[in-house]
Each structure stands twice: as C-alpha cells, then as structure tokens.
C-alpha cells in the first residue's frame, strides 16, 4: 500500500522532470513578471529552490520532508502546500461524495429493476440510458449542461462554488457517467444471482418476492458492485480534475491543473500524494466491506 503511494510520487516527480519548459524560468515569470525577467534572476531561483540538483536528489529531499510531515511551500507564492490542499480538499470531497451518492441512488435501483424485469420496457429504457451515459465524455457533457441549463435556461450558475445550485451541474456531470457503469454491472450481477439455486430455495420456502430480491439476491449481487465502486473512485478523482476545471470549482483537481501549468513542483507533488493516498484508502475500505458482505472471505482470513 505504501509502495503504491511511493510509486505514484516517484512517477509524478520524474514525469514533471521530463515535461518541456524550464521550471526556474516559469517561477521567475510568476514572481517578477515578464518585464523584469533576467538570466541572473532565473539562475538565482534555480539555486535557491534547489532545482540545480539531479532529479533523484530533489526527490530525496522532498521525501525526507514529507516523512517529517512537511509538504513544502509553493514555488510560486511561497504558501504552505499542506495549507493549500487542506483549504481546497473539502470542496473536492463535497463534489466527489455528492456525485457518488447521486450515481448510486440512480444505478442500484435501476440496475435491480432492469434485472428483475428483464427484457421489459423498463429494462430497455435503463440500458439505453446507461449506454448513453457510458459513451458521453465528462468534459463534453459538462459543457452541454452549462450551455443548456445555465446559458440558455439560466437555471443554474455557470461556474464557481456557493450554494446547492452551484453543486448540481458538476455533480450531474460526474454522477451520470459513473451511474451508467454501475447500473450495467448491477443488472448483470443481479441476473447472474437470480439464476442461482439458493434463490430457488428462498422462493421454495415461500418467501415474498420482495424479500427474495431485497435480501438474498441483493446482498449477493452487491459483492462485485462494491468492488467496482472502489475502482470508480479513481475515475471520480480523474473526473474531478476535468469537471473542476470546467466549472471553476475550487478543489484539488483544479489546484493540480493550475500548478501543472505553473510548473509548481511542490504543489503538484502534494496533490499527487494526497490523491494517491485517498485512492489507496478507498480500496482498503472496499476490501474491508468485502469481508463484511462475503463470509467466505472472512473465513479464509481467519484460517
């Protein structure tokens, strides 16, 4: 787990190193403006910020600081990276969780109904919706929604963060794509479970159909769905980068994009570290919930 987080930081560090553009120059422009830019100034920044050392030395220094709980300072404005991230993080969390909830609220009932009423109008409608949702890229859907609901109808603000009305469009953008995948998975998983002998036993016992579906089929069908929800969290973090940029949402994704453009190494590294850590933690949570859902896994661990 630690290895994954470490690997991600190494990767971002080296990728940043290979991207074109001299970071010292970019920082100098950001600090002093285009007019006062001198070669000496750039060199001074290079030495001052330790950008002259080989890349692995730079990484080593950074890692040492991180271990001591210091994410460093922004190369541009000198602010604490940890403070920047802590300031932006709640906005991203709000967006991500709201999207997750929206997608699950749509996906699970639609998936189950589609499976139970297989080949009905409901099923076809659900699956067509899911197909559209899957094939629509986030950035495009986001722009369409802005055009229609904000520019044309004027119902919601175009961008920014504020009340619930600011949240709706970005959440719909992120949530629908995810809902599409989860719906399809819930449906196929449910269809698979409904064919099982223990469902026949539950019916043979004389249980009501809602108990057969809602208890026995549901818990079994949720096992693969929970896994995919964990994986989708990665999709969600990636999605927030795009969606936060489109809607000017002041979250971590936007911070990451801005700092990449500014070659602000310290902030990029900080963001990558935080995102990787969240991802790993979510996957851990998925593994734990797995053991709760599936007693066979619990048993294997104990043995």
């Amino acid at each position: 787990m630690l290895a994954i987080v470490l690997g991600v930081t190494v990767l971002t560090f080296s990728l940043m190193h290979f991207t074109p553009g001299d970071p010292a120059e970019m920082i100098a422009i950001a600090r002093y403006g285009m007019e006062d830019l001198t070669q000496e100034g750039i060199e001074w920044i290079r030495i001052q910020e330790g950008l002259d050392a080989p890349v692995w030395v730079q990484y080593g220094r950074w890692l040492n600081h991180v271990i001591h709980g210091d994410l460093g300072r922004s190369l541009i404005d000198g602010g604490l990276v940890s403070k920047d991230i802590m300031y932006r993080f709640p906005a991203t969390l709000q967006l991500a969780l709201a999207s997750m909830i929206v997608s699950l609220v749509i996906a699970i009932p639609v998936g189950i109904l589609s499976a139970v009423k297989q080949n009905s109008a409901m099923d076809y409608l659900g699956m067509t919706g899911a197909l559209i949702g899957v094939s629509m890229p986030n950035f495009w859907l986001g722009l369409l929604l802005v055009l229609f609901f904000s520019v044309y109808l004027g119902w919601f603000p175009v961008c920014g963060k504020g009340g619930i009305e600011h949240l709706i469009l970005p959440v719909v953008t992120l949530g629908t794509g995810m809902a599409a995948i989860t719906t399809r998975l819930t449906r196929s998983s449910m269809l698979e479970v409904l064919r099982q002998n223990y469902i026949r036993t539950a019916r043979a016992k004389g249980l009501a159909e809602k108990l057969v579906i809602g208890k026995h089929a549901f818990k079994n069908a949720m096992i693969p769905v929970v896994t995919i929800i964990g994986l989708q969290f990665a999709f969600l973090l990636e999605g927030t980068v795009i969606v936060e940029t489109i809607f000017a949402w002041p979250g971590i994704g936007r911070l990451l994009v801005d700092s990449i453009f500014a070659r602000d190494f310290a902030v990029i590294q900080g963001c990558a570290l935080v995102i990787a850590t969240i991802f790993v933690l979510v996957n851990l949570a998925v593994d734990i919930s797995y053991a709760y859902l599936d007693p066979r896994i619990r048993y294997e661990r104990r043995a």
Binding site: Y198, R200, K205, H216, N220, L293
Partner: peptide, 17 residues
C-alpha cells in the same frame, strides 16, 4: 408443500448464516 434439492451446497445462500 416443501421441497429439497440436489447439490445442497448451491441451494443455501452463501452470505447468510
């Protein structure tokens, strides 16, 4: 009318006691 089946291993729901 009650019924029991072959392959009892597949006839009990694996996720409930």
């Amino acid at each position: 009318i009650a019924m029991i089946f072959e392959q009892p291993a597949t006839c009990l729901d694996p996720v409930f006691t």
